[in-house]
Design a protein around this nucleic acid. Structure first.
Lengths: 186, 186
DNA sequence: GATTTTTTGTGAGGTAGGTCACACTTAAGA
DNA sequence: TCTTAAGTGTGACCTACCTCACAAAAAATC
């Protein structure tokens, strides 16, 4: 059960059996079917979410109804509306399942509790956040520097499995390209 | 001296006089003139940098020699090549001063030392990193959703002082627009 | 304060990528 | 298995933004 999470944490810091059990007791398991929402606009965002199984998209919908995907989340990724979650605001994005999902939910309170009780967990989340920051910087550079084709190729290289799991229409709105243009790329 | 840093830290967690002195002793002060480099491509990136005074740009230069600004850094901001810094790789970006600068340098070793010795510092950096992550997500959304004018207006709204301090040519390469286009915006 | 460098504005013309429309294919429900 | 929905490809046309070029204004440097 949830060995994935343990392996995930131990990529950054070792934890004993007891520690891990204790950590895990702060999570709540949740199962969602394809098309179900994990986070919905205007709602409170009490939890961060660790993906055990499945695939989700986190996306912003603008006034004209156009969707922009902020991130995908698959196995071993974390996803929530971080702006809303950290600042206790209402969600401005939606997150829904592209596949049936199995999720571990961690409330802000439980995260802070764990972080203050177990420094290694605070350490874990700091390092995680640092890496996340770097990943976003790379995406910004990609958006600034590369054209549609370049961004697509970079995405395929980084996450080749995504192609098999996500329709191109949706990839397009991650890349910031129209689906027609993506379809026309050599 | 460096009351700014203390205030900066205390936006997230209180520190005693002794604690602060101890923390500060892990930083090294550095002064740089306009046009000097803080980080240079292909070099090691031993330090993160807290800006006491001045303004810098961190930018990537692509094969055609085009510059893309990853971030600005002014008073109370942190800046380095985080990818290179955290992963101990060579820098892929340059950071140089747009004004004369006063900087506090924190080596990776000293950061980790402080974090392990003082949990409140680990806490501080975790929270900081979380907020940074959210800010980058906002910028990604801006790049995906807004046109040149919209991005420019959002930037002016977020950092009105930047306009007074940075030539538009340089703002353009932050926004991902040519300087001519920026100049033509209404 | 004269001179070089940096920054800005503006025209002309080109192009990557957007939108709209329609047809075809594949997958999902009932 | 039939029916509806979701995803894809392609043409025609449009537009936001790019590049190149030149000139004027403003700053920096000696």
């Amino acid at each position: 059960m949830s060995i994935e999470l343990r392996k995930h944490i131990e990529e950054i810091t070792p934890v004993s059996d007891d520690e891990f059990d204790y950590i895990l007791s702060h999570f709540r398991k949740k199962k969602l079917k394809k098309h179900q929402f994990l986070v919905q606009e205007n709602n409170e965002v009490l939890n961060d979410h660790y993906v055990i199984k499945g695939l989700l998209k986190a996306y912003y919908t603008n006034d004209e109804g156009k969707e922009h995907i902020l991130q995908f989340a698959m196995e071993n990724w974390w996803v929530t509306d971080y702006q809303a979650h950290f600042k206790k605001e209402k969600a401005t994005i939606n997150i829904d399942c592209l596949e049936d999902c199995e999720i571990l939910c961690l409330s802000l309170e439980n995260r802070e509790k764990l972080c203050s009780e177990l420094q290694k967990i605070e350490h874990f989340f700091r390092i995680k956040s640092n890496f996340g920051y770097v990943a976003l910087q790379r995406r910004i550079l990609s958006l600034l520097d590369k054209d549609a084709k370049g961004r697509y190729e970079q995405l395929m290289e980084l996450y080749p499995t995504l192609l098999q799991r996500v329709p191109k229409t949706i990839l397009a709105s991650y890349l910031g390209v129209s689906r027609e243009t993506l379809s026309r790329l050599s």
